[in-house]
Design a protein around this nucleic acid. Structure first.
Lengths: 325, 325
DNA sequence: CGCGTTTACGTCGTTCGTAACGATA
DNA sequence: TATCGTTACGAACGACGTAAACGCG
């Protein structure tokens, strides 16, 4: 058994059982992979894939288990490489972030700009997805950024970054804009809402807040992207309910209202798989998004495989202030 | 980076930084290890060991971290090998048990005999140590057997096997033997005791039971081995306080008394490092020691990296009965 | 007939062991 | 001077890539 064999194995599994495609991915030739796979199967004593004719039909049950372990091996090897790269002060590399659209569009730009200033040779790749899908990318990404209302994300060590609230964005002539006070849940329920896709789930904090007040919201439109929500607010399709981070100077034509207090605060988290060694620049990004946390503490907890008692995260506004300074 | 390099690296670390000795351990030549170590250091970009002259003086700080990860890599590779060996029904192998003397001497013999009957080609190695040290061997052993009173052992997935009580072993002419009832803690405190080494620790269940009654035991002698305790009981040095499993037919010259009820029941656990794949014969041993647990459940929990709600373990007597049948 | 896998084969690189050398206590 | 690590060298093994053959849709 060699690391190459394990690397080829997961490449084949990740390429939909297409050895030719897997060969390109690992920068090798197809017969090479074929042969190494055979060698590995010979050594283990059973087939890892079910063949139909000459091509791979599916992963054998035993293959599933072996691949799981192989991934762990490769992850640890990657950890050694990352650790070594940090140790010798390597400045180049890649930073793959799995994140929501709102983070990517409104929160990350200044943060990433700062990281790129500190590490100009680092390639930053953004992988924007919906709330629910972000965690699925965690095995490939370096870290995931995700927001929740109340619960702590699973899938790794969750680091609380900051708190934020939702706000209402309406046209100036919208009925809600004429109220002297922040609208109540009942008042809000009287108008069509435009919000994030995830808020339609029955167990979302939004739905729970409304049902707690005995009313049902009219979520007439959803989008993953705050920009789209704004567009439809301007088109007069309803009131936008979105993250306060998504409001910027370009929204002066609209009115910004506080959301009802029953709609709970959210927390944005960074999630890092347990035991993963982060490159310096990833830690730098993390630290910029949570300056309240000590850098050494961060590293210690991330590598210590254990949860930690984090301090309460600051509100988004404070973080913004810290970053602009 | 190759698996060979990582294997050589930990071999060197485990051989007290003696490359020659490490070479024997991995069945290779010394120049081979020397060269591979150099190649690994070259690839990583820094030295893993601190040299004084030409010999290795100590593990460099960075080396400590790399070795930790290397061990995880090798452990996962070993898991793949174990899984494969199970998959193809391999009947030979090695079973290294870290255990206490009492288990090794009185509990394990019939169990191991049964396992050897089922797997004649398996080499069983016992590593008997004191209560506290057993867990230190866990990284090298396949599983550890350890007893506690109340607490759950750490260091891996703990599987409760059976419950047991301590008993008193005294000479027929001992004053305690004349009592009509089981002695109380106060009565016991009036006589010198001979017990296990671990019972002298202030936080041991024995000490806590006595101090709860406001008396202090006179633990005049300790030993790790129940046989030794019996020997000294026969020499008239005091009353033996030991595990009920340690009493057998050869003790008919002595009197067996119940221990005071305040001395709590103990539980014997099997501890398996998280994520380790056990060979079939190891699982067989585990199942024989805890027939109340389903074999599939066992494997699922051990490999699922998560604790489980185990059923209450049976008393030792029931287990003994099941094994003799 | 195109796609993908396997088999065959030649070359290159690497590893390994033996042997000699160097340093150190 | 004995012990341990490094360097040097030759042989053998293994991995890789090119090219061709084989099955399958």
């Amino acid at each position: 058994m060699t690391l190459t064999q394990l690397r080829y194995l997961v490449a084949i599994a990740d390429s939909g059982l297409n050895i030719t495609q897997a060969a390109e991915r690992v920068h090798a030739t197809q017969p090479g992979l074929s042969k190494q796979l055979k060698a590995l199967e010979d050594e283990l004593g059973f087939q890892l894939f079910v063949r139909r004719g000459r091509s791979l039909e599916s992963v054998a049950p035993a293959g599933v288990r072996v691949i799981e372990h192989a991934r762990k091996v490769l992850a640890e090897v990657a950890n050694i490489r990352s650790y070594a790269a940090n140790e010798r002060g390597e400045l180049s590399g890649r930073l793959l972030l799995a994140t929501t659209h709102t983070q990517a569009r409104y929160v990350l730009p200044p943060v990433i700009a700062a990281v790129k200033r500190e590490f100009p040779q680092v390639n930053v790749d953004l992988l924007a997805a919906g709330d629910a899908e972000v965690l699925n990318w965690l095995d490939q990404a370096d870290l995931a950024l995700i927001s929740t209302a109340g619960s702590v994300p699973t899938g790794g060590v969750a680091v609380p970054l900051y708190r934020w609230r939702r706000v209402l964005l309406v046209q100036r002539e919208h009925p809600l804009a004429r109220l002297a006070h922040a609208p109540t849940l009942a008042e809000l329920a009287a108008h069509p809402l435009i919000s994030y896709e995830s808020s339609t789930r029955a167990d979302s904090s939004l739905q729970r807040a409304f049902s707690g007040a005995g009313v049902a919201p009219q979520v007439g439109m959803t989008a993953r992207d705050a920009n789209l929500i704004k567009t439809y607010v301007r088109a007069g399709l309803g009131a936008g309910l979105l993250a306060e981070m998504a409001v910027d100077a370009s929204d002066e034509d609209l009115r910004i209202l506080q959301a009802p207090p029953e709609i709970p605060e959210c927390v944005t988290w960074a999630v890092v798989p347990r035991g993963r060694v982060l490159r310096e620049y990833a830690l730098s990004l993390l630290h910029r998004m949570a300056p309240q946390l000590d850098r050494r503490d961060l590293r210690r907890v991330l590598e210590g495989n254990q949860g930690a008692a984090w301090p309460a995260p600051p509100h988004w506004g404070e973080l913004l202030h810290a970053n602009s300074a």
